[in-house]
Amino acid sequence: MSEAVATALGNANRRLLTRLSIVAAIMFGFGFALVPLYDRLCEALGINRLVDKARDTGNTQIDYTRKVVIELDANAHNLPWQFRPLTRHIEVHPGELTTVEYEITNLRNRPVTGQALPSFGPTTAGAHMKKLDCFCFRQQTLGPGETRRMPVVFLIDDKLPSDINTITLSYTFFEVAGKDGPS
């Protein structure tokens, strides 16, 4: 192969390298472009709406004809935390905004981060419990010996099946290891 042909090939290779690198860079951007695209598609298809306009303007009256018992439960999984609800059970009407409080104490002499996971009994009730605020929405870091009171603000929607009269709301805290400072 002559020197001229070799140089031409080297140039052709570098041109292709540039083009393919541009494709790779565009595809990296494409991954991020999927974020707004996903939102638009969900909007267009009317699915997965966190804020449903039709539902916002619906009837929000409290159904005083019906009572539901909420039983509150708290556990810590392999975690030296004292974790308890301040009320064990409470009676609510569907549509009524309710606030309950939990208290948590870190018994360890260093900061610990935990994440609470909720579970519902019966599980079908979970879809009808609308939480406006919850300590389980984010990780909680407690300093050594710190005690904290944390709220759950929720309402039960009026579509709750009529055969459910008692809902058990249970939280279990798991330690997030490797995260003992504020995150």
Binding site: V23, A24, M27, F28, G29, F30, G31, F32, V35, S183
Partner: peptide, 27 residues
């Protein structure tokens, strides 16, 4: 070339969600 950058984007979003306060996947 077409798909690896997309994965790199996905884990980058996870990383920024974890440490830089973005909310791509954080409900």
């Amino acid at each position: 070339i077409a798909t690896m950058p997309v994965l790199a984007g996905a884990v980058t979003m996870t990383l920024t969600d974890r440490h830089f306060g973005t909310s791509f996947f954080n409900a």
